[in-house]
Structures are given as C-alpha cells and as structure tokens.
Design a protein around this nucleic acid. Structure first.
Ligand SMILES: [Mn+2]
Ligand SMILES: [Mn+2]
Ligand SMILES: [Zn+2]
Ligand SMILES: [Zn+2]
Lengths: 129, 129
DNA sequence: CCAGACATTAGACAATGTCTAAATCCACGC
DNA sequence: GCGTGGATTTAGACATTGTCTAATGTCTGG
C-alpha cells in the first residue's frame, strides 16, 4: 500500500495508508463519511479534516476518481480505468458498468483554452413502479 | 405559462408561475438559489421552502430535468429534450451539448425490477494549464 | 539536537437542502 | 356572503456535507 502511494507521488503516512486501505481493499465506491467510519472502526485515529484532505489529495494525484452522482455526497472510486456507472436512485447503490457495455462517440467543440478532465456516463435507474 | 403548467398536471399558482418563468424565460441551467434570487428580485414573494418544493414538483411532473454535476448544488434544466452537458470545473459554467455531437450506444444489464430513469453524459473540462 | 517543512487536528463555520406546524388561499356547496 | 376542507405557502429550526484556520505534532537532513 505504501508503494502504491509512493508510485503516485504521495508521502505514505499512517493516515493515508489507512484511507487507501479502506478504498482499495474493498474496491467499492465510498463516500467521505463511509471512509471516515471504516478508518475509525477499531479506535478513533483519523480526523474528519484529514479524511477530506486526503481524499482530495488522492484525486489530484490520480489515485482515485471522484464521482458526482448523488446530490448529497461525493463518492470516491478506487477504479481509475475507463468505465461507467449505474446509480439506483431509490437505494443509493452505485455500481460499475464495464466499458464494453456502453460506448460514447463524438466530442463537442470545447470552449477555447480548456481541456477535457473526464467524461462521465451515468445510468440512473429506479424501482419499476 | 399557466397553460404549460396545466399541461403537465400542475396547478398554476402565482409562485409556481413565477418559478417556471424564471427557468423558461432564460432557458438556462439554474440552481435553487438562483431561482430564489430571480423570483424575489423585485420584492420578496416566494419562500425558500416553496422554491424547493416547486422545483421537486416540476421534476416529478417532467417539466424540468435535474442535473447532478456540481458537488455542491443541483441544477435545473428547462430543456427536457435529449441532450448532454459540458461542465467547466473552474468556473462552474454549465452548457448544453446537442445530441448530434455525441452518441451513447449500448445498454448494461439492469438490476432486476428496475427501469431507466435517465442517462446522463457529462463532459468535464478545465482550464488548460 | 535543531530548524523547517510537512501533516494532522478540533472545532467553528458555510452552504445546501429538509422538515414541521401554523397560516393562508381558494373552490365549492349552501 | 359564509363556512368547510383540501391544497399551498411559510418561517425558521434542523440535518448533513464539506471547508477553513490556527495550533499542534511529526519527521528529516544537517
Ligand atoms: Mn490502525
Ligand atoms: Mn410578481
Ligand atoms: Zn466505478
Ligand atoms: Zn441542458
């Protein structure tokens, strides 16, 4: 885990290793709150500020991907390979869609002086009523 | 405007007409806060609770589309025709991408008992550094 | 050991959105 | 006109997520 952090130019401190562990050992999409809870299950170890600071750092360094899908919280995705997402509105469950299932073609004209940061494709589903 | 509301099965009250007017006369993507500000420019008329209640009602009735693109606020889109979005991270500016510029193909297997509510495609751009 | 950079922290703060109970509005029958 | 009842609006308390600041802690090279 420390090596993974170092390979992304992140100084591997105790807290950062714990937070990376929470994300990568589960391979799930977690919110900051969930990361906080996992990291502090045994005994309180890591502050809220550090969780937020660290997740932001991980995103900047390309270690995890930020997902804006739920209006009330951001999710963090340890899978940075190209893939899409399926969001179940009623339950809040977020799952991956392999890049082989859906493709995006074409690109719009971009505003001058801007570059693409990422393209997000989200399929929203709800209970069949 | 009252007829537009009625055609979507919405009882056209004074406040609802004002809020619809704020959205449809501008044809822009507005946040709840911006709607609130526009509606109350001349004189305070509509409460925060009503703005939120009404926007939720409009979404339920299919009059406007909800866009989850910015981690801190929801945008409301008076354009319900199929189209995509371009989000400038640095400025928060949100603009339309015509459906002719980008296409999505394929569909993932959906969880049992669910139906598609919508498919969102968002191109995120930032200043070229 | 020391200096200085880096990292962590508690808790105040800000912003967005939700909720509740009370007030208001309005269409309807009389 | 008047009373009734459902729909609508409202103020403001509340909850949640995330940010910020100033103080403290940690580590390393010299
Ligand atoms: Mn530990
Ligand atoms: Mn008015
Ligand atoms: Zn994912
Ligand atoms: Zn749009």
């Amino acid at each position: 885990m420390a090596d993974l952090l170092r390979s992304h130019d992140i100084n591997p401190t105790h807290q950062r290793i714990e937070i990376a562990h929470a994300l990568f050992s589960r391979q799930e999409h977690l919110s900051a709150d969930q990361v906080m809870a996992f990291v502090n299950t045994r005994h309180s170890e890591t502050s809220k500020a550090t969780v937020y600071n660290t997740l932001k750092l991980f995103v900047e360094k390309g270690l995890v991907r930020e997902l804006i899908v739920d209006p009330s919280k951001v999710f963090y995705d340890p899978n940075t390979h190209p893939h899409h997402h399926l969001y179940e509105i009623d339950t809040g469950k977020l799952s991956d869609i392999g890049a082989e299932y859906m493709q995006v073609s074409g690109l719009p004209p971009l505003p001058a002086g801007t570059v693409i940061e990422g393209i997000d494709l989200i399929v929203r589903v709800r209970r069949a009523s």
